[in-house]
Write a protein that binds this DNA or RNA. Structure first.
Ligand SMILES: [Mn+2]
Ligand SMILES: [Mn+2]
Ligand SMILES: [Zn+2]
Ligand SMILES: [Zn+2]
Lengths: 133, 133
DNA sequence: CCGTGGTTTGGACTTTGTCCAAAGTCGGAC
DNA sequence: GTCCGACTTTGGACAAAGTCCAAACCACGG
């Protein structure tokens, strides 16, 4: 099994793993999970009532900057956070239930034309999930 | 040449093409254009000073619902609007200048596994544009 | 010309995210 | 063990982006 987000954070050096950070990491643990910042906040509050919104936002941003958390902009409303960075995968937004679902990475090699340098590619599929189809 | 957004709107039936709607369509005219709602608003105000923000937002949404305008959620901040629905194409966000650029559609056929029904796929590339590379 | 229904308007409101100064906490130096 | 400095958290103010709504406006058919 791949190491969890919390395990990956524990390996980071020069980084205090505070109660707040642990709680945020715990909330994010799981398969096929794509929570918004406010969803993370309310679940974190259940475990650590005095945690503040600013901390949740800044902690999420730190995890993203450390490369341990993916930030998804799927709908122009709120960003979603995905702890499963490996293996890389894409996402389907169900047009019926609005859910977000992982889709296996089919290695759609970016076309390297035109002199532009592509670093990464993210695919957003729209359609119906297995439950709604 | 492909018909412009305004031309496509004129072919819609049962739909009043008011001054406000014409101005919004005009602002959106052009190649490689990916404006935010507020950018559309300020350019529209230059042509029709009394136009309101609510109208711009609702007009954009109508164009999107009619299938005549693409709505892009590229960065989790503001949505961008793309009048060039044909031919389909994808987008590159330049990590250096933050610009949005069209990328030719390389027909990355969605993998049809798993019983989910894919209607469309949008690819967001990150990298450096031709100017910055 | 009137009535009716679609359209627009301004402003209030909500959601999502950012910023900051003050307070708190941790770990190493002594 | 205590102190210090750096890192972290907090609450609240602020900002950006978008939504909602009642009232006013306008266009068109009858
Ligand atoms: Mn995922
Ligand atoms: Mn485009
Ligand atoms: Zn579904
Ligand atoms: Zn660039």
């Amino acid at each position: 099994m791949h190491p969890t987000l919390l395990e990956r954070l524990q390996q980071q050096r020069g980084y205090r793993l505070t109660a707040q950070r642990r709680v945020v990491a715990q909330v994010l643990e799981g398969e096929n999970l794509h929570l918004t910042a406010d969803e993370v906040l309310s679940q974190a509050e259940a475990m650590l009532p005095e945690i503040s919104r600013a901390t949740v936002y800044s902690t999420l941003q730190q995890f993203v900057d450390m490369g341990q958390l993916l930030e998804l902009s799927l709908d122009g409303r709120s960003r979603r956070y995905d702890p499963n960075i490996d293996p890389p995968h894409h996402h389907l937004i169900c047009t019926e239930c609005d859910g977000v679902f992982d889709v296996a990475h089919n290695v759609a090699a970016p076309d390297a034309g035109d002199g532009l340098e592509i670093e990464s590619a993210q695919i957003i599929y729209r359609g119906r999930c297995t439950d709604c189809a």
